[in-house]
């Protein structure tokens, strides 16, 4: 995988979520995504960024623009050092929430991405990776 560009953004406030959306949009545009593809990855990024803030107590996201001919894409790795997720299978179900949301964040982001993975350890934190390519 050739990394075209890599940057790290903090996720410490609601304004940071807006910045993550903006950075993801810009990355998707650079990679030549269609408007629908852009919207899908930006929406997925927004969901995961909010989880990082609300459930993980904040963290960061690493945004990577990559090229794997013939594919070009954007990969986002969100990490926090929050409480972690005890039951990952349950967390990925539509409608499950431990907070006040709709429970669509993780499952929805997974549907909107070409690649999705979640690693979590109780008491240590959570790492969510999403990617989309064209």
């Amino acid at each position: 995988m050739a990394v075209v560009h890599r940057s790290v953004l903090p996720i410490r406030s609601q304004e940071d979520i807006v910045r993550v959306r903006k950075a993801t949009r810009e990355s998707a545009v650079v990679q030549g995504f269609s408007l629908v593809e852009q919207t899908k990855i930006v929406t997925a990024a927004s969901e995961i960024a909010r989880n990082t803030l609300d459930y993980g107590g904040g963290g960061e996201v690493e945004v990577t623009l990559f090229s794997e001919p013939p594919r070009r894409g954007v990969r986002l790795v969100f990490s926090d050092k929050g409480p972690g997720i005890a039951d990952i299978e349950q967390a990925l179900k539509d409608g499950f929430t431990s907070g006040s949301g709709l429970g669509l964040g993780l499952s929805g982001a997974k549907r909107l991405s070409n690649e999705f993975s979640l690693q979590s350890k109780v008491g240590e934190g959570t790492q969510v990776t999403i990617a989309r390519w064209r």
Partner: peptide, 14 residues
């Protein structure tokens, strides 16, 4: 609602 937003909303499950 923009078409791209409508498509994404439905896929998101909303």
């Amino acid at each position: 609602i923009q078409p791209a937003v409508a498509i994404t909303l439905v896929e998101l499950g909303l």
